[in-house]
Simulated assay, not measured.
Amino acid sequence: MTLLDRITVNPLQCGGRPCIRGMRIRVSDVLDLLGAGVEVDEILSDYPDLEREDIYAALIWAARYVDHPRLSA
C-alpha cells in the first residue's frame, strides 16, 4: 500500500470528496487543521482512528492536486 492508497473517493460518502481510508474524515478537514497550526500529535489525539501516515497521505494528495496541470479552452 502506498500513502496515496489511503485516500479514497466514494460518490456516496461526504459528497464524493476525498476521505481518509473510507472514513468520514475528509482530506480537507486534515488540511484545514494543519493550516490552522494544529500539531500532528494533537490531530491524532482528537481523531483516534487516524494514523500519522494518513496525515502524510493528505499532504501528498494536496501537493499533487495543486500541481495538476489545467487546460483551458
Rank of each mutant, 00 (worst) to 15 (best):
M1I: 13
M1C: 14
M1H: 15
T2K: 07
L3I: 09
L3E: 09
L3D: 07
L4W: 08
L4M: 14
D5Q: 15
R6L: 15
I7A: 06
I7P: 05
I7C: 12
T8V: 04
T8D: 02
T8M: 14
T8R: 09
V9G: 02
V9W: 02
V9L: 09
P11L: 13
L12Q: 10
L12H: 08
Q13N: 09
Q13K: 06
Q13L: 15
C14Q: 04
G16N: 03
R17Y: 00
C19M: 14
C19V: 12
I20N: 05
I20D: 01
I20G: 00
G22C: 07
G22D: 06
M23E: 00
M23R: 00
R24N: 06
R24T: 09
I25V: 15
S28Q: 08
S28H: 04
S28D: 04
D29Y: 02
D29S: 07
V30H: 05
V30N: 00
V30L: 12
L31T: 04
L31C: 12
L33G: 04
L33S: 03
L33D: 00
L33W: 06
L33K: 05
G35F: 10
A36Q: 00
A36L: 08
A36K: 04
E39I: 02
V40Q: 09
V40P: 05
V40C: 14
E42P: 01
E42R: 11
E42T: 14
I43D: 14
I43W: 09
L44V: 05
L44Q: 10
L44H: 00
D46S: 15
P48R: 07
P48E: 12
E51Y: 05
E51L: 13
E51F: 09
R52H: 11
R52A: 13
R52C: 07
E53S: 14
E53Q: 09
D54Y: 04
D54K: 10
D54M: 12
D54P: 02
I55S: 10
Y56W: 06
Y56E: 15
Y56T: 00
A57P: 03
L59N: 01
L59M: 15
I60E: 14
W61P: 02
A62C: 08
A63L: 14
A63F: 12
Y65C: 01
Y65H: 06
V66E: 11
V66N: 01
D67Y: 03
D67K: 04
H68N: 07
H68M: 15
H68P: 03
H68L: 15
R70H: 12
L71T: 05
S72Q: 13
S72M: 11
S72E: 14
S72D: 11
A73P: 00
A73E: 08
A73T: 11
A73N: 12
